[in-house]
Design a protein around this nucleic acid. Structure first.
Length: 504
RNA sequence: GGCGAUAUGGUGUAAGGGUUAGCACGCGGCCCUCUCAAGGCCGAAAUCCGGGUUCGAAUCCCGGUAUCGCUACCA
């Protein structure tokens, strides 16, 4: 059976066995949107297949690793609702396993000790340019250590994989399809770094070894990861074979780019999941948006709640094209969810926002919960982000609000207003029943008597009540605020309106 | 430089030989209207270029171009 046939067979088998997938971030930064999307796809696949979603922390780079960052990554996953079934496991605590695997490869001749100094091959593009763009220094590593003839034996050695030359390696990617590469194009990559005194002699694995050993140990059936790993796959396949293991199915997902079509990075602005949480996006909206970046359900449905995503997700719907992160569409999703989420699911998010803004009152969660729910329901059609509740809608939650300058200039200009608003205040104060229609009638009758358009009074009153040019329909607003607050706010506004209209 | 992948309106995508190339965001207009949203309707806007294969190509093949990835004792 050829290698690709065994992969095929594996694909068949996997339906019958329990699917196990993993998300394996390295704690070198926060959880960024690309990582979050990879995590989401893994999670969706696990939930769709009734499998297990496992978390693994790849912290084998002592130089760049920042242990304190792990909690932030976990927070990001929790916020997105991506709960894991196992882990987090830390690679730094599993060093013995990697050393054992390397030892085994060494003993069967699939790997060898390399005594070359690390600097010999380090440098990347910058070194490339330093020597000259046309140079061919970027070559596939095949040093004399491979033949057991190290040029020096003065340093502690690294373990390199002995790539079997003259053959080809192929695999079937669940997204990108059949892949094939000449082994001669694959360098003898490092498995185990050379021991360094500073580290206390512990041999640290590279990504290639760590990932393969762990994926074997954890019985991972499907490796779903960013397409930047697609060229690593043949190396790992070679490792699986050398270790006598059946490889998992690989599914590479396209990358997420910034508006300029380069890989998403800090200079594109917000790239961490937490920054979107802080800006007031709802996790479900963010998740929905992220799911549609590089995946399509197949039909025209875009608003997909989590349960629907789980129902519909499939690797075959994953695109092969890199996707641009479109903030405008993310905001649209957020607005949709702000409007359509069941009110009970929205309330906690609004509460958190009001708490953040110092406007929250505990009774809104208890004795005045109905009032709070009604207010949020009234406000939400014109919110796009959570902070809208504490910004333009501030006056719904506190007496401490200002009159917006533009609103005053636009709606308090008419010189008849001081008199009209004073009369309206008296009319409202005298109303026996505080209902939408009673308020409506009182205002329109006054407008008719005074021969002015109702809109003049409506807009001026709106500014008096909430200080903003933008707010829900006036009589709904009056109802939610209640008679006492409405009358009091109008009396408070009268002198300001007078000053305004006189000055104007 | 080498190796590889990808290519549908500005953006996310659908259409896997035969459609007036569909949907959504964004954009413009109209309706609704008490401000602003929402909602409804209408509109502008795309198959990277060039060769093949075929009666017929967005779809298959080749070349070019562009973009992205890998080319670390990073992951």
């Amino acid at each position: 059976m050829t290698h690709s046939e065994s992969l095929q067979a594996r694909a068949e088998d996997s339906r019958g066995e329990n699917v196990r997938v993993r998300f394996a971030p390295s704690p070198t930064g926060y959880l960024h949107v690309g990582g979050a999307r990879t995590a989401l796809f893994n999670w969706l696949f696990a939930r769709t297949q009734r499998g297990r979603f496992i978390l693994r922390i790849e912290d084998t780079d002592l130089e760049r690793n920042r242990p304190e960052l792990v909690e932030g990554i976990l927070d990001g996953l929790r916020w997105l609702g991506l709960d894991w079934d196992e882990g987090p496991l830390y690679q730094s605590q599993r060093l013995a396993g990697y050393a054992a695997a390397a030892e085994k490869l060494l003993s069967i001749g699939a790997a060898y000790l390399c005594y070359c100094p690390p600097e010999k091959y380090a440098g990347g593009d910058s070194a490339d340019e330093a020597v000259g763009a046309k140079s061919e220094i970027r070559r596939i590593v095949r040093c004399s250590c491979r033949e057991g003839k190290p040029s020096t034996a003065e340093q502690s050695p690294a373990v390199r994989f002995r790539v079997p030359l003259g053959a080809t390696t192929r695999f079937d990617d669940a997204v990108f399809g059949s892949r094939e590469i000449q082994n001669d194009e694959i360098e003898d990559f490092v498995l185990l770094r050379s021991a360094r005194p500073a580290i206390g002699g512990a041999a640290l694995p590279t990504y290639q070894l760590g990932a393969v050993v762990d994926d074997m140990d954890m019985r991972i059936t499907h490796v779903i990861r960013g397409a930047d790993h697609i060229s690593n796959t043949p190396k790992q396949l070679l490792l699986y074979r050398a270790l006598g293991a059946v490889p998992p199915i690989f599914a590479h997902v396209p990358l997420i780019l910034g508006p300029d079509r380069t890989r998403l990075s800090k200079r594109h602005g917000a790239t961490s999941v937490s920054s979107y949480r802080d800006e007031g996006f709802l996790p479900e909206a963010f998740r929905n948006f992220l799911a549609l970046l590089g995946w399509s359900s197949g039909d025209d449905t875009e608003m997909l709640r989590t349960s629907e995503l789980i129902q519909r997700f499939s690797l075959s719907g994953v695109s092969r094209t890199n996707a641009v992160f479109d903030r405008a569409k993310l905001e649209w999703f957020n607005q949709q969810y702000l409007q359509k989420l069941p009110i009970d699911e929205l309330l906690p998010a609004v509460q958190a926002e009001l708490e953040r803004a110092g406007l929250w009152r505990p009774e809104w969660a208890t004795s005045q919960r109905d009032w709070f729910a009604r207010s949020v329901d009234l406000l939400r059609p014109r919110t796009r982000l959570l902070p809208d509740f504490s910004h333009w809608a501030r006056a719904f939650f506190t007496e401490d609000f200002d009159y917006d300058l533009a609103a005053r200039e636009k709606f308090w200009k008419d010189e008849r207003l001081p008199d009209l608003l004073a009369r309206l205040t008296d009319e409202l104060a005298a109303l026996p029943d505080w209902t939408h229609d009673a308020c409506d009638r009182a205002l329109r009758q006054l407008a008719e008597k005074a021969a002015v358009k109702a809109a003049l009074l409506i807009n001026a009153t709106r500014v008096a009540l909430v200080g903003q040019p933008v707010a829900p329909p006036l009589f709904d607003t009056m109802l939610v605020l209640g008679k006492e607050r409405v009358v009091a706010r109008m009396r408070r506004a009268l002198p300001v309106v007078s000053a305004r209209s006189v000055a104007g």
